[in-house]
Amino acid sequence: METRILTYFLKIAELSNMSKAAEELHITQPTLSRQIKTLEDSLGVKLFQRGNRSMTLTSAGIIFQKRAQRIVELVNKAEQDISDQTELNGVISIGCIESTVSNFLGSMITSFHNKYPKVRFNLYDADGSDIHEKLDRGTIDLGFLMTPVEVAKYNSIKLPVTDQWCLAVPKDHPIAQQTKIATNDLRSLPLIIPTRKIVQGEIFSWLHIPANELNIISTQNLVSDSLFLIKAQIAFAICIAGAFYDRPDPDLTLVPIDTDTVVNHVMVWRKNYTLSRSAITFIEFIKEQVDDPNSLWQLYSKASK
């Protein structure tokens, strides 16, 4: 089965329309229709329900879509990795959480690009669980995450980047006038907490409050998922400050939680997995920047403290 056919299938699934897909793929509609019919015949199932103006995936089509996406991602990744064996010009795929570490990553990419201008980057803004999944599937090379992380599966470098735990509340709420909020005061509030179990465990640990003694209304992958609940004062989000700094909301404010716990960050990549030369070079570049007390990032970090 050619990946070209999988790309055709995925484009139709994305647009739900054969003629629009044919136009974007720069092939004729009859040709595209024949290719999909051949694919369905070879699989022995119908992938699409055909309507007058739209095509929707069948249950088999939904399953096949997930597998096809993974196959195409891996093939594209393999082609990119091979392309940088002659000179440093491949693509480095990186997943990064929403936090202060994104500023660090941006600084590193800028410096690295100045040195290796032919290297390109694919950046994915996601939560920790999504980044772990992409790392494990091999569709990204590196993950920039907050601690704690599941270190057994990954190589890691501790980064000179910290963040703090805060409570996101509406600006007109009485809590917004406080300079800090005591951990014990969180007992009486409706809360939204991160989805990842390992992060939840970390929060319960420094709160010194069992989960069953908190009024947890919801969990969230990204802070942006819970903005409506916060603004409606249905619940308030425990989150890291950096998740809001890049996307400030005029209706919300962050109140630091009174805890000595500092959020640290790491760069991780899979153990026993062959990375491209460009990805390995980028890792070495990060190591040099982290270890060098006179690097631009280290000097900036000291000045900002």
Rank of each mutant, 00 (worst) to 15 (best):
D246K: 12
P250L: 10
I280C: 07
E213I: 06
D246V: 06
V266R: 04
T253C: 09
A237N: 09
I230Q: 01
D246R: 11
A232L: 13
W206Q: 10
Y245F: 09
I257Y: 02
S224T: 14
I283D: 00
Q220Y: 12
R270G: 04
P248F: 01
R247M: 12
F282M: 05
A235E: 02
L214R: 10
C239V: 11
N264S: 15
I240L: 03
P248K: 03
D260F: 07
T281S: 14
T274Q: 09
Q220A: 09
F204I: 08
D260M: 13
C239S: 06
H208G: 10
L222Y: 08
R247V: 08
S226Y: 07
M267Q: 03
S224H: 15
C239D: 07
K271A: 05
R277F: 15
L207V: 03
S276A: 08
V223H: 02
V262R: 15
A235T: 04
S276H: 10
D249H: 14
S226N: 11
D249P: 06
T259E: 04
D246H: 15
L214N: 06
T253E: 02
A237Q: 06
P256F: 01
N264L: 14
L222Q: 12
L275W: 07
I203M: 04
A241R: 03
N212P: 10
T261C: 14
N215L: 08
Q220S: 09
I280T: 11
F204H: 08
T281I: 06
P248Y: 00
T281Y: 05
S218L: 10
E213M: 12
R247D: 11
P250E: 14
I217W: 09
L227H: 13
V255Y: 00
S278F: 01
N212T: 13
T253Y: 00
L214C: 10
Q233M: 11
I234C: 09
S226I: 07
I240E: 00
